[in-house]
Amino acid sequence: MSTVEDYVARIEGTCGAEKDLIVIFKYDKKDEAIARILKKAQLKNSLAGIIFELAFHDVSFRVYKSGKAIFRGIKNREQLNEILVGLLL
């Protein structure tokens, strides 16, 4: 059975007043992770297949083709984990 850890290498808090969270997907799983996210989240905008601006359960976030995603307005890592479970599994 897959887990979030199968796709996520690490999660980092951004440095700055914004307090956003950046998810770095495992290199060999990033394409699969992005594909799963694109299936489940609402696509609001995309640029040349490089950036995807998305929404999921009232949370807006951006996914980058390089295998990173930035989530805004997340209360804590537990909430982010719930969102990642919803998006990836």
């Binding site: 440095c15 700055g16 007043a17 956003d20 950046i22 950036i51 951006r62 980058y64 930035i70």
Partner: peptide
């Protein structure tokens, strides 16, 4: 755009910059 979005965007093209407070929050 936030500085982190700019950094992540550039990262897609192999360009590395720094985003955040740069360990100098008072100046920000």
């Amino acid at each position: 755009l936030s500085s982190h979005d700019i950094a992540l965007f550039l990262d897609n093209y192999g360009i590395m910059i720094r985003s955040g407070f740069h360990c100098a929050q008072p100046l920000h």
